[in-house]
Nucleic acid binder design. Structure first.
Length: 1245
RNA sequence: GGGCGGAUAGCUCAGCGGUAGAGCGUCGCCCUUACAAGGCGAGGGUCACAGGUUCAAUCCCUGUUCCGCCCA
């Protein structure tokens, strides 16, 4: 069955995905048991609107829920994931109306209610099916046998039941209240369906209302002048002195013949706002409505359902509200009653569906009394019976629930659940010319039932006879219910409620409600209220709210923006002409099929709690590649299986190799981690864990290591490796299955092993096996990996082709390490491309070799004849610089008595150990650097113009300023370790080879002690000066200044580098650059060669700064003779290289920054916390130091950067601005600390 | 006006008191027979700004500025 040729070279998702979904369906794997011994896990799919097709947000929903469902199913749960669609009242009615208009030019009224609804049902059939199909393409393991629709018979029955019960309980009532009305949709809206636009530009008009029986006028300020025609009062603040005595009088309402009262109302009127006089229009403004109620004002409706002026408005009747506004303003102007118009920012409510400005409208509607429902929901969350993830949504939920208003649930639409209220056609009031009469006035029967005044009979079924008059003819309330009304019942209506079904018993409360945070109020809150009220328990235990998916630019996806992405286009691919513009731009040849697995993995990976998801095509491509990687790793395994077939049962550990044990151990860790992350809904991290494990550990290391035995002759070893390969793959596939269901199934089916189930989707989710957690193996593997990485670094840096086999000498003082490396040379050689490896104790090193110094081993690769050694020297210097940099940082900490005293001992200990390690490493590197030094050349002649260290020029690379070699020793890094390094360096200078590392802790301690006391006795003024320079190179400005001051106090006459730098400012390019660099120099200390060469080596005298730096120190000390001259050829190369890079510096440094803040301090401070602290305490000093540092840092930066960076020449222009790059030192430091982060992470994490 | 997020590498994002990470992109060397959708190596960070707390701050606190969302 394991035909290796079965797997194609590249993974092709399309065919595989279609095949497996059909198979799963056929085998009924998605179906949940109504009753089962297994624990239940249930999720109801938030029902997508049947308005159209799924967008990428739905894909996210489906992905997350399917991950949960598959994971739980594999974990032994009786898992129900229940699909369905939502009828989406307004939205669907609108799209169908639109289509009707477009295709047939008809309105819904042309068809009539029944015929129109038929059309909508047709639409529903079409798009409902399409939505189902899309979910299938996404791999969603939904229980289609239980698919539901919010308007199917069962749901409708539930809706009726709920409505009637609420009515019976007094929680559902009908009332004439002011509600939000969309004049375009011509229906009531709930508060939530109104969107508030921030600060729209508008005007506020000041209108004079003449006070009756007086010459006085009252000026009201209003943003809606047209509504004055509906004013039934003007209000003033009772304590407003301007209007004392006016309350109780009346004004003449302009443009009408009405007189309206002046009322005093402290609640409505803010005397500080506008004129302090407010027009009151109770039928068209929510605040005025309340005022009207308080003062029992008449409520005059002047706008009809389409927001046209009613006949109440006389000459304005029939005008649209905005037209009317113009007319009213014109008329007021004419009458001289318009005082002024001012610009005004206003907030306008618009219809969520059609963006029309909504209009408050007085009309009879159905409402749910919400408070009695909200309270238990709040309590449930308070008590933790339902939890929000992320937790931060809890407060949002509370806030809204505690300020909730009664819910207007009636909609003047056709598509939806018609309200189960009936009116007797015999005795109900009728519409007619008497509609202006009071509500309780007797009526003349003219037209149809006047629902505003008729008495409803609420019942599950149409009543047989009218309890009032005995009439048998009824008409049902024409309104339908808010879509969210039926959605609110979803968690139990879908399970059969109000019938008592086994499903209800098994799956309610559902386990998780997973949905977008945008519908927390619309839907989640309402489900909570309804669920608790009707089921007596919360509808779900956990609410996981996911983020919104936005496009790559963070824009919300919308049809109008044209940035909507159809998930199926990603899954299946799409021709360019079908794509929206940005995607077409990105994929001019059309979108390739990424496959559902890649899309799902991408969405899962990008899912972070509390942050929107910007869908990145780059990442999508990356995860597609991940699928391919998995595919090919499996392909590799399968092609090497031979006749092997793994039997069931535990692995025999006795035959395992180190690599086997290592990967098995790593696998257990990944398993544990992935499971824990899933438990906490950390989908992104779970995906990342699996990604890292598969790629960086299993593929990059284990498969490579396995090749040895697979390609070898030892049949037993071969089988053992095969066993481990299959074991791991099986588990990796199962771990990944919830994320990538298709590819994992496809591969899993091909593994040569006994399968406990017919499909991976019902196989158990892997559990960690403690028996395979193997610390020892991981420990043994570490030096092997370290050695391989070291060798690869050497190869990479030397640009050695992988085909070139090299010899390597590995030395370690540690017997165990040597033993391991010797034993596992079989791993070492192929992975590092070695033809030969010699493992031994530290001793003779090969000449002309490249070296890698690890924490416990050193590696040498003779490079003579392979590459020139210049590159290697550069690399070593860089390494040295990094070590020094880090060491300096750690030593700074250790020097601080507070740190030693207050930090936890283990932290201090760790730092101490780190210093030791770094010291040793540095010594070895320096030692090696010296040993591969080119033939000594004549020392360069020091520039005659300067003798101070700063101005003295170091030679390009190794050149030492003759004037200061000895002082160099006092470089900052050594300062703390002080004595030791000093001694060591001196030794080096004297030609001694002994490593100082073992020199003695006592010396270190002594030095430290001295430093802590601040005495630094034993340092000469000159030492202080050099120390200052060294500090400066680290950006430790304050420390530097202190040392300079001490030097001066002691008689040292040299000027501070800053001064020096300044002095040099007018000089020619190279010279200046050097001078500038000097202070920050440590940056370049790692590569003096480079900076020198970059300078074209034309101004050797100027590079002096390098000398002072710690790194060069050693160089100089130990290899004083080394000259740049020695390697002219190299130099040239280096030069150009550097030149190319130089400009790069500019890149990082925005011009604006160069302009002028004092970056130095900041930069310096950053890298050197200690210094920062110092600065804080000594402001005066800081000031002093700042200037110096700024200059120093500013300048030096570019140099280092230039030296290090490889950037295209095009950027040269910006070099100057590079000054800003101050943090150069940081960069250097960074490198020091992260020799090989990626590799390290790969290997160890 | 109130509330909640966010600001970390060129891009998309993790991390959140103790040596800054990933993927993609970039640069260099490689078509090494699982994978060029690849391998190995490298480069790349004022962790928005300003204060504060701390031995130590990207991380905690306060404030500021931008961006986004929600509510009124």
């Amino acid at each position: 069955m394991t035909d290796t040729t079965e797997l194609s070279k590249a993974y092709e998702p399309t065919e595989v995905e279609a095949r497996w979904y059909a198979c799963w369906m056929e085998r009924n794997y998605f179906r949940a048991e109504a009753t089962s011994d297994k624990p239940a896990f249930s999720i109801v799919l938030p029902p997508p609107n049947v308005t159209g097709s799924l967008h990428i947000g739905h894909a996210l929903t489906a992905t997350i829920q399917d991950i949960l469902a598959r994971w739980k199913r594999m974990s032994g749960f009786n898992t129900l994931w229940l699909p369905g669609t939502d009828h989406a009242g307004i939205a669907t009615q609108m799209v169908v109306e639109k289509e009707l208009k477009k295709t047939e030019g008809k309105s819904r009224h042309d068809l009539g209610r029944a015929a129109f609804l038929e059309r909508v049902w047709e639409w529903k059939g079409k798009y409902g099916a399409r939505i189902g199909e899309q979910h299938r393409f996404l791999g969603a393991s939904l229980d289609w046998s239980r698919e539901r629709f919010t308007m199917d018979e069962q749901s409708s029955a539930a809706v009726r039941e709920v409505f009637v019960r609420l009515y019976e309980e007094g929680l559902m009532y009908r009332a004439q209240k002011l509600i939000n009305w969309c004049p375009s949709c011509r229906t009531a809206l709930s508060d939530l369906e109104v969107e508030h636009e921030e600060s729209k530009k508008g005007s506020i008009w000041h209108i004079r209302y003449p006070v009756k029986d007086s010459d006085r006028t009252l000026t009201v300020a209003t943003t809606r002048p047209e509504t004055m025609l509906g004013d039934t009062a003007v209000a003033i603040h009772p304590e407003d002195e301007r209007y004392l005595g006016l309350a109780g009088k009346s004004v003449k309402l302009p443009l009408t013949d009405r007189e309206i009262p002046i009322i005093a109302d402290a609640e409505l009127v803010d005397p500080k706002f506008g004129t302090g006089v407010v027009k009151v229009t109770p039928a068209h403004d929510f605040n005025d409505y309340q005022t009207g109620l308080r003062h029992k004002l008449p409520m005059l409706t002047i706008l009809d359902e389409a927001a046209r002026m009613t006949k109440e408005t006389g000459k304005y009747a029939g005008l649209d509200r905005f037209e009317a506004r113009k007319q009213v303003l014109a008329d007021l102007t004419e009458q001289g009653l318009l005082e002024k118009e001012e610009p005004h920012m206003l907030n306008v409510g618009t219809c969520q569906r059609c963006a029309t400005v909504v209009e408050p409208r007085l009309s009879p509607q159905w409402f749910i009394k919400i408070e009695p429902l909200a309270k238990p929901a709040i309590e449930a969350v308070e008590q933790g019976r339902t939890k929000f993830v992320p937790e931060s949504w809890t407060n949002t939920f509370f806030h809204w629930m505690r300020n909730i208003h009664d819910w207007c649930v009636s909609r003047q639409l056709w598509w939806g659940h018609q309200i189960p209220a009936y009116y007797c056609t015999s005795c109900s009031p009728r519409q007619g010319d008497d509609t202006d009469l009071p509500l309780d006035a007797p009526t003349v029967k003219v037209g149809g039932v006047d629902f505003a005044r008729a008495e409803p009979i609420v019942a599950r079924e149409q009543p047989k006879s009218c309890p009032k008059c005995g009439g048998a003819s009824f008409i049902q309330d024409p309104d339908v219910l808010d879509t969210w009304f039926s959605s609110g019942l979803w968690p139990f209506s879908t399970l059969g409620w109000p019938r008592e079904t086994p499903e209800l018993k098994t799956f309610y409360p559902t386990s998780v409600m997973e949905t977008g945070h945008d519908i927390i109020f619309f839907w989640v809150a309402r489900m909570m209220m309804m669920g608790i009220h009707f089921m007596g328990d919360v509808p779900f235990r956990t609410v996981y709210l996911h983020a919104m998916v936005r496009d790559e630019k963070g824009q919300k996806m919308s049809k109008t923006k044209g940035n909507v992405i159809d998930p199926l286009d990603i899954v299946l691919g799409a021709p360019a002409d079908k794509l929206q513009p940005t995607l077409k731009n990105r994929f001019p040849q059309g979108m390739p099929p990424f496959g559902a697995d890649a899309l799902r993995f991408t969405l899962a990976s990008l899912t972070q709690q509390g942050r929107d998801i910007k869908l990145s095509m780059d990442r999508l491509e990356g995860y597609k590649a991940f699928g391919n990687k998995l595919w090919n790793a499996s392909r590799f395994a399968l092609m090497n299986m031979g006749d092997f077939r793994m039997e069931a049962g535990p692995l025999d550990r006795s035959t395992l190799t180190l690599a086997d044990r290592w990967i098995l151990s790593r696998l257990q860790r990944a398993t544990t981690e992935a499971r824990a992350l899933l438990e906490s809904y950390s989908f992104g991290e779970a995906a990342s864990t699996l990604y890292q494990f598969l790629w960086a550990e299993f593929c990059d290391w284990y498969i490579e290591l396995a090749k040895g035995s697979l390609y070898g002759e030892d049949a037993a070893a071969k089988d053992s490796t095969r066993r481990v390969l299959v074991y791991c793959l099986d588990r990796i596939l199962r771990l990944l299955h919830p994320f990538m269901p298709f590819i994992t199934e496809e591969i899993w089916q091909k593994l040569p092993m006994a399968r406990p189930t017919d499909s991976i989707m019902i196989a158990p989710y892997p559990e960690p096996d403690a028996a395979h957690v193997d610390e020892a193996a991981e420990g043994e593997m570490a030096p092997v990996i370290a050695a391989i990485e070291g060798l690869r670094t050497i190869r990479g840096e030397s640009n050695l082709s992988p085909a070139t086999k090299v010899k390597a000498v590995v030395q370690s003082a540690d017997v165990r390490t040597r033993e391991l490396l010797e034993r596992w040379r079989g791993y070492l050689m192929p992975l590092a491309g070695l033809s030969e490896v010699t493992v031994g104790a530290p001793g003779a090193k090969p000449p002309q070799a490249a070296a890698f110094v690890g924490s416990n081993l050193e590696i040498y690769v003779p490079l003579a004849g392979l590459v020139d050694l210049d590159a290697e020297r550069e690399r070593l210097k860089k390494e040295i610089a990094r070590a020094e940099q880090e060491m300096a940082g750690v030593l700074r900490k250790l020097e601080n008595p507070n740190f030693v005293a207050k930090a936890p001992p283990d932290v201090v200990e760790k730092d101490r150990a780190r210093v030791e390690e770094l010291k040793e490493r540095k010594a070895k590197l320096q030692d090696h650097l010296q040993r591969i030094a080119p033939e000594p050349a004549m020392p360069e002649t020091p520039p005659s113009e300067s003798t101070t260290p700063e101005s003295s020029t170091p030679t390009a690379e190794e050149g030492a300023s003759p004037s200061a070699p000895a002082q160099v020793k006092v470089a900052p890094n050594q300062e703390e370790k002080g004595g030791v390094d000093l001694g060591q360096e001196l030794k080096g200078e004297l030609g001694e080879t002994g490593t100082a590392s073992e020199a003695g802790d006592t010396q270190v301690q002594d030095a430290l002690a001295k430093l802590r006391e601040g005495t630094k006795e034993g340092l000469s003024p000159s030492d202080h000066h050099d120390l200052g320079v060294a500090y400066m190179t680290m950006g430790l400005v304050d420390d530097a200044m202190r040392e300079f001051n001490r030097a001066k106090e002691g008689g040292d006459t040299r000027e501070t580098p800053a001064e020096g730098a300044e002095a040099e400012e007018g000089e020619s390019g190279p010279v200046k650059a050097h001078g500038d660099m000097l202070p920050t120099r440590e940056v370049t200390q790692g590569e003096p060669v480079r900076s020198a060469s970059k300078k074209k080596a034309t101004a050797p005298g100027k590079v002096h700064g390098d000398k002072l730096a710690p790194a060069p120190t050693t160089e100089e000390a130990e290899a004083p003779a080394v000259k740049k001259a020695a390697a002219p050829a190299k130099k040239a190369a280096g030069t150009s290289a550097v030149a190319r890079k130089a400009p790069a510096a500019a890149k990082k440094a925005p011009a604006k920054k160069a302009a002028g803040k004092a970056p130095a301090k900041k930069a310096a401070a950053k890298k050197a916390p200690a210094k920062k602290a110092a600065a804080k305490k000594a402001p005066a000093k800081k000031a002093a130091g700042k200037g110096a540092a700024k200059k120093a840092v500013a300048k030096k930066a570019p140099a280092k950067k230039a030296a290090v960076k490889k950037a295209p020449a095009k950027k040269a222009a910006g070099r100057k601005t590079a000054a800003k790059k101050a943090p150069a030192k940081k960069a250097a430091a960074k490198k020091a600390t992260r020799a090989k982060p990626a590799a390290r992470a790969k290997a160890r994490r």
